[in-house]
Design a protein around this nucleic acid. Structure first.
Length: 559
DNA sequence: AGGGTTTGCCAC
DNA sequence: AAACGTGGCAAACCCT
């Protein structure tokens, strides 16, 4: 059963059930309560049809209402437009409705930057609809939804697109829930890590003691004052001491034999930590409250952007949630009496390539726990080289060792290599490629212009590397979405705030009461099996997730 | 002063 | 080992 929903911005709204054109409209004063009631009483979970999860769902979640399934019109519109090679067109409900009626298409509303802890969300969000004033929003929603269902049905692989829009929408739900719950983050532990590496917290705008000391020693080693934060000044300094370099990238500096180099490298490393994930970051992005025992409980609240990357990976707005450095992950701790359950899909992309290409030899390797070890046995010994060869095939690397390795790979895994090589050729010629479920690669703006000469050739090659990688990365993102959707629905009933709290490309972290850890781990394992059979029925390829229970995120990360 | 670009490094 | 895919972000830099 599909139920169309429009919020009135004051806690109430309108429902049309079913969401098809014939349904009857119901006005409700308490939308969250009405949705909750329908979730409880329906035999099968309703699929809520709404303009966008990020518009409608946050208010419901804040009111304590969670739903199992939805159809997100904006996310669906983006997928359909992409399929039609119309990337970049506006995706909001109002834009889709305007296209349907041949009216001027409004731009998508600009989302405010993730406000961290500084902006308190309004109790109920203002209406972000881009429909014309006075429009019947529910009728427009129902109409656009019907149009989207027709467009999906017309596709040659409509079943796959139906699945893709369903899991993309489920991702929209999960993202709102994760943003709301937040990743457990202990500011006191974070501060201890920072103080240990940088010295005591300085007044804002000043260098921490360890950085100040390093900067002074760098000045002494060079013989004049240098701002190590300034690449231009460091370039000059290196030339001044007789070691000119073409850039100040760390791997370039590493090759220079001079006493200032270790100081510079250490400075860069710590300065990065201080500026990207230091005290200022914590002040902005970690909200704290006192737990029952007086202990400080913190939560990092990232702002996820579902489908924010062309490949279907998620992006984030503010806070850099997808790049939390290993050095501070120790600040991620479960609450007292709770645990973290972490599961990441190791070697996801080569496994995906094995599944989509139907390469028997690669699939046999991908049936193993350690794919690269099996590859090494095929290739002749060295696991590290086998890994480089595989990554070269998926990323389009040609320099260094890659060429002979690729020749070997091409002989051993002909169908897998042909799959990515073919995608690369399509890209070089300006064509589009699609993921397993039909997410479509964009062709760069102004592609036709300047394809001549060495610069044109460089662009063609770059586009080839992009489409080569797209078919793998986008399908890997799909696998992760299917997993996330399956996991959401398999979790046991949990208290407020428990559940999935973090998601990065191929890894999920859950925060649950300790007595639910075992059930949670089982749900992860079942979700993997479901994701595999849903996407690649009958494949021998496995996607080992190895869920681990811990109280400290840092203790599980490699390196 | 403020906006856009460049540089460099973090993550997967 | 070397610079190969997708991104976010902060500070310096450069221009108006």
């Amino acid at each position: 059963m599909r139920i169309a929903v429009v919020a009135d911005g004051e806690g109430g709204g309108w429902l049309q059930e079913p969401a098809e054109l014939t349904g009857s409209v119901r006005r409700v004063g308490d939308l969250a309560a009405a949705v909750r009631e329908a979730e409880r009483s329906a035999d099968e979970p309703p699929r809520w049809v709404w303009s966008a999860c990020e518009d409608v769902y946050p208010d419901l979640v804040r009111a304590g209402t969670r739903v199992r399934r939805c159809h997100d019109v904006a996310l669906t519109e983006a997928l359909l437009l992409g399929y039609e090679a119309r990337h970049g067109e506006a995706t909001s409900l109002g834009a889709a409705w305007a296209r349907l009626h041949g009216r001027p298409v409004p731009d998508d509303p600009v989302r405010p930057l993730g406000g961290g802890t500084t902006v308190q969300p309004a109790l109920f969000e203002a209406d972000r609809s881009t429909l014309p004033p006075g429009a019947d929003r529910l009728a427009a929603l129902v109409e656009v939804h019907a149009d989207q269902m027709r467009r999906i049905a017309r596709l040659p692989e409509s079943g796959r697109m139906r699945l893709l829009t369903a899991v993309e929408s489920a991702g929209g739900l999960a993202a709102v829930e994760m943003s709301h719950d937040g990743l457990p983050w202990r500011p006191d532990v974070h501060d201890r890590i920072l103080t240990g590496l940088l010295g005591a917290r300085p007044p804002s705008g000043q260098r921490p003691p360890v950085l100040a000391d390093l900067a002074a020693r760098i000045g002494e080693a060079v013989g004049r004052e240098v701002n190590p934060d300034s690449p231009a000044q460091v370039l000059k300094a290196m030339a001044w001491i007789g070691h000119p370099v073409e850039s100040t990238r760390s791997w370039v500096l590493e090759k220079v034999d001079h006493p200032v180099v270790p100081l510079l490298l250490r400075y860069k490393e710590l300065a990065r930590l201080h500026s990207a994930n230091g005290w200022a970051w914590s002040d902005t992005w970690v909200r704290t409250r006192r737990g029952p025992d007086g202990r400080v409980l913190g939560r990092f609240h990232p702002d996820y952007v579902v489908g924010g990357v062309v490949s279907g990976r998620w992006a984030t707005r503010g806070g850099g949630a997808l790049q939390i450095p290993r050095s501070v992950r120790g600040a991620v701790r479960s609450d007292p009496g709770w645990v973290l359950v972490r599961a990441d899909a190791g070697q996801l992309e080569p496994r995906v390539l094995a599944a989509v290409s139907g390469d028997d030899a690669l699939a046999a390797a991908a049936a193993e726990e350690d794919l690269y070890a099996r590859l090494a046995a095929h290739v002749g010994g060295d696991r590290e080289r086998a890994k480089i060869g595989m990554l070269s095939a998926m990323y389009g690397q040609t320099s260094g060792d890659a060429a002979p390795l690729l020749a070997t790979m091409r002989r051993l895994y002909p169908r897998a290599l042909e799959y990515v090589d073919s995608a690369a050729r399509t890209g070089e010629n300006g064509g589009i490629v699609r993921s397993w479920l039909g997410r479509t690669s964009p062709v760069p703006r102004g592609w036709q212009a300047s394809l001549q000469g060495p610069e044109g050739e460089r662009r063609r090659r770059a586009q080839g590397r992009f489409t080569r990688n797209f078919v793998v990365q986008a399908t890997a993102a799909e696998w992760a979405l299917v997993l996330l959707a399956a996991l959401r629905r398999r979790l046991p009933v949990m208290p407020e705030g428990a559940g999935i709290v973090f998601f990065v490309h191929d890894e999920v972290v859950l925060h649950v009461p300790a007595d639910l850890a075992e059930e949670t781990v089982n749900a992860v394992i079942e979700a993997e099996a479901q994701a595999r059979s849903t996407l690649f029925a009958g494949t021998p390829v496995r996607f080992p997730l190895s869920p681990v229970v811990t109280q400290n995120y840092a203790l599980l990360t490699n390196g």
